[in-house]
């Protein structure tokens, strides 16, 4: 395989990873690492470096759509970024100390969990309108401009509902974990960030997903310095992966509205389960 063919194949694979990642909401980074490692036999660390770079690109590239919606909460995001960036430093430091076998096994478990989590029905949570004292002090509150996703009865005049963050120490702790996974594996770990805000802190789901997207880029940037200094980011691999995932995910978020997602999601989840099992097997067998 020549360098040209290798680069083009990696680009096309990244394009599909970004496209499917955006359409199913599972993210592109989580598939591109096993794809590079298992299909192209790229070293785990170069794959993580390329994925981390693509995660920063998609997070920043998608900002336009999220800003237009006006649902992300800039204060909640910034406050929780203290936890995710510290976690990311810790995770990236761990990544340089731990064997690639163990990283592959953790990666496999995260893949299996993301496939499972994408099918777990979202519990309808009660909107918490009663102000939490710590949330008031830290200004972790906001107004939700539409009535969807909130149960009726919580609406206030003017078509907006107030929300207030709950269980802030728990959310902060989960965010540290999300950052650690991001730095350890070179992924965005958006699913864990949403879990922290949506399930732990009881924020409206749309606020959680849009704020999470804003946070992913800053979290990944905290690992990037350590990845750069250790030589994890190889320009020859990062180039096709970043461009492919970015273009794929921008296209995917446009197609999203017009395509029936359930079948696609099922297929993609099966692919992720297969990749996860393969990563764990190779990690245990010491082949990664």
């Amino acid at each position: 395989m020549t360098l040209f063919v290798f680069t083009v194949l990696v680009f096309v694979t990244s394009l599909f990873a970004g496209l499917l990642g955006a359409m199913t909401g599972l993210g592109g980074g989580v598939v591109i690492v096993p794809a590079l490692v298992l299909l192209f036999r790229v070293d785990m660390r170069y794959a993580m470096g390329a994925s981390l770079v693509s995660v920063i690109a998609t997070s920043s590239g998608a900002a336009a759509a999220y800003v237009r919606d006006g649902l992300s909460n800039i204060r909640i995001g910034m406050f929780l970024e203290i936890a995710t960036t510290l976690g990311a430093l810790f995770g990236a430091y761990l990544a340089t100390r731990v064997s690639t076998h163990s990283i592959a096994i953790v990666f496999g478990i995260v893949l299996l969990y993301s496939a499972f989590a994408s099918f777990r029905g979202r519990k309808k949570l009660e909107a918490v309108t009663k102000p939490n004292p710590l949330a008031v002090r830290l200004k972790l509150e906001g107004d939700f401009p539409s009535s969807e996703s909130l149960p009726s009865g919580s609406m206030q005049a003017g078509g907006s509902a107030h929300y207030s963050a709950q269980r802030i120490p728990l959310g902060f702790g989960i965010m540290f974990g999300a950052g650690t996974l991001s730095g350890l594996l070179g992924i965005g770990s958006g699913a864990v960030k949403v879990l922290a805000m949506d399930q732990a802190m009881k924020l409206p789901f749309k606020v959680s997903t849009t704020t999470s997207n804003f946070m992913i880029g800053v979290t990944a940037a905290a690992s990037a310095g350590i990845y750069l200094s250790r030589g994890y980011i190889d320009p020859g691999i990062a180039m096709p992966v970043m461009l492919g995932v970015l273009i794929g995910s921008l296209a995917g978020s446009r197609l999203l509205v017009r395509t029936p997602v359930s079948t696609l999601k099922m297929v993609f989840a099966l692919v992720i389960v297969a990749l996860g099992a393969e990563m764990i097997y190779n990690g245990v067998a010491g082949r990664i």
Binding site: F4, R41, G231, P240
Partner: peptide, 27 residues
């Protein structure tokens, strides 16, 4: 732009990416 120059001047061999070389920091 860098990628296009990279591909147009690419040789025939694929550099080794199967093994991580800690000594040679690529960045």
């Amino acid at each position: 732009i860098g990628g296009l120059i990279y591909l147009s001047s690419a040789g025939t061999a694929v550099p080794d990416r199967h093994h991580f070389t800690r000594e040679k920091v690529v960045f």
